[in-house]
Design a protein around this nucleic acid. Structure first.
Lengths: 221, 221
DNA sequence: CCCTTAAACTAGCGGTGTAAGTTTTGCCGC
DNA sequence: GCGGCAAAACTTACACCGCTAGTTTAAGGG
């Protein structure tokens, strides 16, 4: 089959379909031939639109990251902005958990990931955090969000009561974690995020706040 | 070549060599044939000792997890134990960063991972945390540690000054992150862990401490 | 000493990413 | 209108992947 009258593939269609395949069947099941089949096409045709498989994965990852909202850094105080951002980030990743192991390796050259890092870092510096501190805070929050989306804590435990009863006395109820997966994971995230922000606020008051307490509430800078 | 006078493979040797290959060349480069070549053997011979490739990876992951020290939960107060554990956990993972994406998906049936979860959860409950809270805290710390080991924040940025200068005004210095990778990642981890523990201590004082403030310092329960 | 089992082998299946070359179509300049 | 070029699909092929099946030989127990 030669060139069709109307192109059957576009970058956008490929990315959308790739996302659907990864969401439905996981990263290991995602192959160029599998994706092409889903698009009614043969594997190599994809290479008319992307140079490598990784380039497709990068596009998927960037689309996912693009859904993260960092607008709080322009309008709210740093702590509220961090909280909003972290939740938005988590929602974006948990909506497509199977791509997270790929995405979490770093922003690389993906524009959405870099724009996000830029917004967070800029917002923290504007609020008065020293640049090195701002880097650390952005990284720490990223660790937490990526870790929470990567391995759903609850899903990671096997549903086999006997396994725990035999050897792990404190984990007798662990086989029930899967039932409450979402509430366990979200509860852990909420608790951890609150604790993190609480600790950061204390640090801020101790080191930054006294110098110019008003600055942190002003959006522009 | 038939059965040799002295077996050339043992489970331990396979796991050690697999760890070395993964450390040196990354997860994608790790194949059964590659591993077998390193052992002076043909790929399928491995299947005399392990049923699947994943079983080898599980063994590697479990060995890494086995290096984590949870002894603090038996001798120190909960906050100090958490801190010691988190650092030990981080050291174990960053010593073998390439296996982290596999390992972080959950403990599954791996004994070392389950023993670790058991020790942490048991220690927190013994300190007076309500069971649901103990689960959340263990999960939150795991998120943070796994995230920090997974995507080294600093290494994730490309060393290309022009990329940042052109489009991401606040990241002008980002290309230099790689130079200071270790200090950036460790600084971010230290800051985040301190903030987390600070916030948890406040929560503890608010909800658990008043009931039986002495209990938390006693190791036995 | 035989016989079972262990531990290596070879051969091969179906799958992978991707390079190379082919074919047909759409479109642009003459 | 038409020649020619680029685009977008195709087929073929290569080297590698995890893993199965069956074979060979040595080790070790009855």
């Amino acid at each position: 089959m030669p060139r069709p009258r109307q192109p059957r593939l576009t970058r956008q269609l490929i990315v959308e379909t790739a996302t659907a395949v990864i969401d439905a069947e996981g990263l290991p099941a995602f192959s160029t031939r599998r994706l092409a089949a889903e698009l009614g096409v043969r594997g190599p045709s994809l290479y008319n639109h992307f140079a490598t498989k990784d380039e497709i994965l990068d596009a998927v990852a960037d689309t996912v990251t693009g859904a993260v909202d960092t607008s709080g850094f322009a309008s709210r105080d740093w702590a509220a902005a961090l909280r909003d951002w972290a939740w938005s980030y988590r929602r974006a990743l948990t909506a497509h958990p199977n791509i997270v192991p790929y995405l979490a390796q770093g922003p690389g050259r993906r524009p959405a990931g870099l724009a996000m890092a830029d917004a967070v870092y800029g917002g923290l510096v504007r609020a008065g955090w020293p640049p090195a501190r701002a880097t650390h805070i952005g990284a720490a929050l990223r660790y937490f969000v990526a870790g929470s989306a990567l391995g759903s804590f609850a899903r990671g435990f096997v549903e086999d009561p006997e396994l725990y009863a035999a050897h792990y006395p404190h984990l007798r109820q662990a086989h029930r974690l899967a039932e409450h997966q979402q509430s366990v994971d979200e509860g852990a995230f909420a608790l951890g995020l609150d604790a993190l922000l609480h600790g950061l606020a204390a640090e801020y008051d101790r080191t930054v706040g006294p110098l110019d307490p008003v600055e942190s509430a002003r959006p522009s800078g």
